[in-house]
Simulated assay, not measured.
Amino acid sequence: MKAGYIIRDQEKPHFVTITVVDWIDIFTRKAYRDIIINCLDFCIKNKGMLLYGYVIMSNHIHLIVQSKEGKLSELMRDFKKFTATQILKHLHTEPESRKEWILERFAKATETHIRNKNFQVWQYGNHAEEIYTIKFMWDKLNYIHLNPVRAGIVEKAVHYIDSSASTYALGKGMVDITFAENPVVDTTKNSEFWKYNSYDD
């Protein structure tokens, strides 16, 4: 992992990308997206996670996250470990048409790493970028929220249920996020996000 993507200041918020090994599209299934949502909710309520924004795409997730306890690396490690365990448990116990193929890819990913003995769900590293200004925070929030729009999944970011876009635009969502401060600049003039989120359908 590049040195620039290491979490150095454990107390600062970071833009974090977590990717499934081999870019497997596991989150096309609602059950696996729900695992992520439930874990985020648990971490917010019990692990001191401050979540400013998120999106769950088909094979990766983006978060803007901070640790109240100044232990962001530990928080992300535990998040990845728990979600990996739950994903594997679901794969082994619930119907899944791609089960054998997915497990084969997860098993193969362990061949070059000794830490995981049987299966590896997440790529190593978190691709973390420190959030150093409010403007940078909103640049990353806009990037996160527009992911599903750029991917052609929805026309408006607020229509994508597995992200924090609707929470910012409508005041409600699947996870109780921490709202980012309003930027000093006028977001109606320079933010892509609001171009895609007028309330008239």
Results as ranks from 00 to 15, higher is better:
I6L: 13
G48T: 03
H159E: 14
E192N: 12
N116Y: 11
N197K: 08
S73D: 04
N118F: 12
I161T: 12
K108N: 15
K30N: 15
E130P: 08
K195D: 11
T28E: 15
L170T: 02
N182V: 09
N126L: 05
K89L: 10
K140E: 04
F119A: 05
W194S: 01
T83C: 09
I35Y: 02
E100D: 14
I153H: 07
G70A: 03
L40V: 05
K71Q: 09
I6P: 01
R8I: 13
P148Y: 06
F106I: 09
F119W: 10
D9N: 13
G125R: 03
Y32V: 08
Y132L: 07
W122G: 03
L88S: 09
P183W: 08
F15W: 06
P13M: 05
I56F: 06
T19H: 06
D25M: 08
W122C: 05
H62K: 03
E96V: 11
H113S: 12
A157D: 06
D176F: 00
I131N: 01
T187L: 14
N142A: 13
H127S: 15
G48N: 06
V16N: 01
I35S: 02
T17Y: 09
E100L: 11
G152D: 02
K195G: 09
I35A: 04
N126H: 09
K140H: 08
I44K: 06
Y52W: 12
Q86A: 11
G152Y: 07
H14F: 04
E69T: 00
R98A: 10
Q123E: 14
K2Q: 12
F136W: 09
T28C: 12
D34P: 00
L141C: 07
D22F: 10
K89E: 12
R33K: 15
K47V: 03
